[in-house]
Computed example of a mutant assay.
Amino acid sequence: MTISEVDLRQRWAEGRACHGVWSVLPGAVTGEVLARTGADFVVVDLQHGARTEAELPGVAAAVTAAGSVPLVRARSPHFADVGRPLDLGARGVIVPNVRDAGHAREVVAAGR
């Protein structure tokens, strides 16, 4: 079953269960294989994983083609680290090291 980021956000908003997998291994094939497990989303870990930004377009396309939503854990809450994955095909970001509500607002602005 294919799921979009809109479907995923709606499920979360309704409090419905979603299933995802976390990927620290490189390669678009890895992303595709993980997505084909039936996961609603695949998180590509740029903070602690072995992936690079250069791989994101291919990985995001492979995850999407396999029916899941590609998400990325950013390296940091800095503007470029939040926005760049979205430019390269991620449909959402998980942002580490957010200090407080004001910082969260800045991070959200960076994603827009």
Rank of each mutant, 00 (worst) to 15 (best):
E53Q: 11
W12N: 12
E14H: 14
F79C: 01
V63R: 01
V21M: 11
D100K: 02
G31A: 06
V6G: 06
R16I: 06
E5H: 09
V29K: 08
V33F: 07
G15K: 13
E53S: 06
V107A: 05
V6R: 10
A74G: 08
T37P: 00
N97T: 07
T37K: 03
D40A: 08
L86F: 05
G111S: 15
A110G: 02
V93S: 09
T52N: 09
R16K: 15
L46C: 11
V72N: 06
G83P: 01
D81N: 13
A35S: 04
A104W: 06
E106W: 03
R84P: 12
S4A: 07
G83S: 14
G31P: 07
G67N: 05
G102Q: 15
R99G: 05
A62M: 10
G83I: 04
G31Y: 04
Q10E: 15
A62C: 10
A104Y: 07
A28N: 05
C18Y: 04
V82P: 08
Q10V: 13
G15W: 12
S76P: 14
R75C: 11
E5L: 03
V33K: 00
L8E: 01
G102P: 06
E14G: 14
R16M: 09
A39K: 01
L8G: 07
G49Q: 10
D45R: 04
E32H: 00
L56E: 00
W12L: 15
A90G: 09
A104M: 08
W22F: 15
V43S: 10
R105T: 11
V6N: 03
G58N: 08
V63S: 05
S4P: 04
